[in-house]
Design a protein around this nucleic acid. Structure first.
Length: 280
DNA sequence: CCCCAGGCGGTTG
DNA sequence: CAACCGCCTGGG
């Protein structure tokens, strides 16, 4: 990165334990985009960053807080040992876990994840990304990076002040009232996402609380809990997962047997299924 | 024109 | 309980 100030450049991890292509493209996040040379640009918690792989290491350039980024990439969790722990769950599980080497579950902004996964329902990834970007452009705050403008994800408070009709530019259809409902619940403190992310709150409890919101079902709730509330035992099951489970596991298979990191196994299975089992 | 896409909620048998 | 079905919208 020629225009990254050395003081803003930090070494995140080895490319073997953080594969940015897999991590950003495995369907968990919607705001990282690569340029033609593979440099990703994203906006997280109000800060922009560029992330790239160079000589076997992953670097990040941002004027944001380094501790925040280390937390975001969950660098203190040993994914390699967790991943190898799944090798013993049968041939298929092992194949998925090998294929998914380098995937990490990002610790995303909670409100952003809630809102994004509401948008995700019955939508494909390009369209989800498009709707999310429009949401940010319309209601987020502009920030500049290398002379280009980017937008922060709008706060729950900002969205809570809107009516469903105000979201018309997003063209997100029947999801608009779900977004407003969720924004108001978060903004008014009816739902405390920070409290739900505390280790003291179980995955099941967090899912149950999120499901009390109109428009949040089992799948969306589990995505939010896994990708932003830091419960690695959450196990979102969508149509891809349903098929993968049906075709490769016994009919009575209960994902709970995968243990406290079942959600990471879910991501390996999901990524493998979505990739069609192809080589990279 | 039809069908479907990484769901949800309400109704029906 | 499971099996439907409508829902906004865009793309094949």
């Amino acid at each position: 990165m020629q225009y990254c100030d050395e003081k803003n450049k930090i070494l995140l991890a080895g490319a073997d334990v953080l594969d940015i292509v897999k991590t950003f493209e495995c369907g968990q996040c919607f705001r990282w985009n690569a340029d033609s040379s593979g440099v990703y640009t994203g906006v997280v918690n109000g800060s922009t960053a560029r992330v790239w792989t160079e000589n076997g290491s992953v670097f990040l350039c941002s004027d944001g807080d380094e501790a925040m980024w280390r937390d975001y990439f969950d660098l203190d969790t040993d994914y390699e040992s967790i991943r190898r722990g799944f090798f013993g769950y049968g041939e298929y599980m092992r194949t998925c876990a090998e294929y998914g080497a380098g995937i990490r579950i990002l610790r995303q902004n909670k409100w952003e994840a809630l809102c994004s996964f509401i948008i995700s329902q019955c939508n494909n990834i390009p369209r989800i990304k498009k709707i999310v970007e429009t949401l940010c452009r319309e209601f987020g705050e502009g920030i500049y990076l290398d002379g280009q403008s980017y937008y922060t994800f709008p706060s729950a408070e900002r969205i809570a002040a809107l009516e469903a009709e105000d979201l018309a530019p997003l063209r997100c259809g029947y999801r608009a009232p779900y977004i407003i409902t969720a924004a108001r619940a978060v903004a008014e403190g009816e739902i405390d996402l920070d409290a739900l992310s505390e280790p003291a709150t179980s995955c099941a409890e967090a899912v149950k609380t999120l499901r009390s919101l109109h428009g949040i079902g089992e799948k969306v709730a589990n995505c939010v809990v896994l990708f932003s509330l830091r419960k690695l035992d959450a196990f979102p099951v969508d149509v891809w997962m349903k098929r993968a489970l049906r075709e490769n596991f016994p009919p009575d298979f209960d994902p709970k047997v995968l243990g406290s990191h079942a959600g990471i196994a879910q991501q390996y299975i999901f990524y493998y299924a979505r990739s069609g089992g192809k080589q990279n």
